[in-house]
Amino acid sequence: MEFETLELKKEGHLAWIILNRPERLNSINGKLLEELQRALTELEADRKVKVLLITGKGKAFCAGADITQFTELNPTEAWKFAKMGREVMTRIENLMKPVIAVINGYALGGGLELALACDIRIASEEAQLGLPEINLGIFPGFGGTQRLTKLVGKGRAVEIMMTGDRIGAKDAEKMGLVNRVVPGSALQEEATKLAEKIAKKSAVALALIKEVVNRGVDAPLQSGLAMESIGWGVAFSTEDKQEGVKAFLEKREPNFKDR
């Protein structure tokens, strides 16, 4: 499958989506959103791929939406663009595979919203994050108002969105916006190590974790706990559960078959 705005690479059980508009700091336009959807469809169907990593080519992860197109959008077209972006982010969030954002530089506006839709965020020390849409007289439209608030809390989220300030990687780590920060020279290696570690687990259990966490975060506690128990019961029906328990008792590494 050929792409114009991104690269898709598969390495064993891992797959990389590399945003490839470095001359525009990997900014998001309609074509990029459409190609992200196509790439996600391919990866979701590929049983060999167990973990997806998303990063950007050049010095940016993604600097947000391509503002050059904003002068041409009327309100209806802007609504459709936001809807398309929201659908892509939701697709990433609900993908039945772990997704890691590998933040190699600027993650601003829609770029940060892309990272927020991922399950885990690992950033380089040079990375800068933020939602600067307020400086254009607008606000985040790809899910940032909701996902950022759930991740860092209302007070911090509102301040980030209302000031439009950039956040350094270390400060982002302190507030829980990113999981970990590593030197830029080690970013790809560390992200790959993390992905490979996760890829050794049962794909069924990984998918169940995502489903229970994503559905439970907006549910009352008792409803979330009920979903957890049901998911736990489903896990007990899998061959991987049998293999995992057997391997533990035999003091060896499990050989999961993802079923």
Rank of each mutant, 00 (worst) to 15 (best):
K9V: 15
D240F: 05
T145E: 11
T76S: 14
L225Q: 14
L206D: 03
K174I: 06
P140G: 07
P140D: 07
A115R: 00
N20Q: 11
G231W: 03
L43G: 00
L249Q: 07
P22I: 12
N214C: 07
K31I: 06
K170V: 06
N26H: 05
R47C: 04
A186M: 15
E4Q: 13
K80A: 14
F3S: 02
K257N: 14
F142H: 10
E23L: 08
R215S: 06
V204L: 07
V51T: 13
N179A: 15
K80H: 10
Q222I: 13
L32T: 02
F139E: 14
T149R: 11
G143M: 06
Q242Y: 08
G216Y: 02
S202P: 04
E211L: 11
Q128F: 04
A207V: 07
G137E: 10
V51I: 15
A127V: 05
L131W: 01
K59F: 05
I67L: 09
I100G: 02
N214E: 15
T41I: 09
Q128R: 11
A247W: 10
A172Q: 07
S185H: 10
E113P: 00
V182T: 11
R156Q: 12
R259Y: 11
R259L: 10
P98R: 01
I120K: 08
A60E: 00
N104C: 06
R156F: 13
G110H: 11
I160G: 01
V88S: 01
V212H: 00
E42Y: 14
G244K: 02
E126Y: 10
P75Y: 11
K48Q: 14
A45F: 04
G231K: 09
T55N: 02
A123P: 02
L148H: 01
E11T: 12
F236A: 15
L36F: 07
E113Y: 05
Q188N: 13
T68E: 12
A191L: 10
S27F: 00
M175G: 02
R91S: 09
R86P: 01
G144D: 04
G111M: 01
L40T: 05
E250T: 12
L36V: 02
G64M: 08
A115C: 14
I138S: 07
K170G: 00
V152H: 02
A127I: 04
L131N: 04
N20P: 05
A205D: 13
L177M: 11
I92L: 14
N94E: 10
D46H: 05
N135Y: 13
C118P: 05
A115N: 00
S229P: 00
T192K: 13
M227H: 10
E239I: 12
E72C: 10
G30L: 02
K150S: 11
L33F: 08
R86E: 12
T68Y: 06
Q37K: 11
N26K: 00
L32H: 01
N74A: 09
I67Y: 07
D218T: 07
Q69W: 13
G105Y: 03
I103E: 00
G64C: 13
L194M: 09
A65P: 03
K150Q: 15
V51Q: 04
I167D: 03
E173V: 01
V99G: 03
V234S: 11
A172L: 06
L6C: 01
S185E: 15
P220F: 08
N20R: 05
A123N: 07
S237T: 15
R259H: 03
I167A: 05
T145G: 05
R47N: 10
V245Q: 12
K48I: 12
I17G: 02
A205K: 03
A203G: 14
I122W: 02
M1G: 10
W16V: 06
N104K: 08
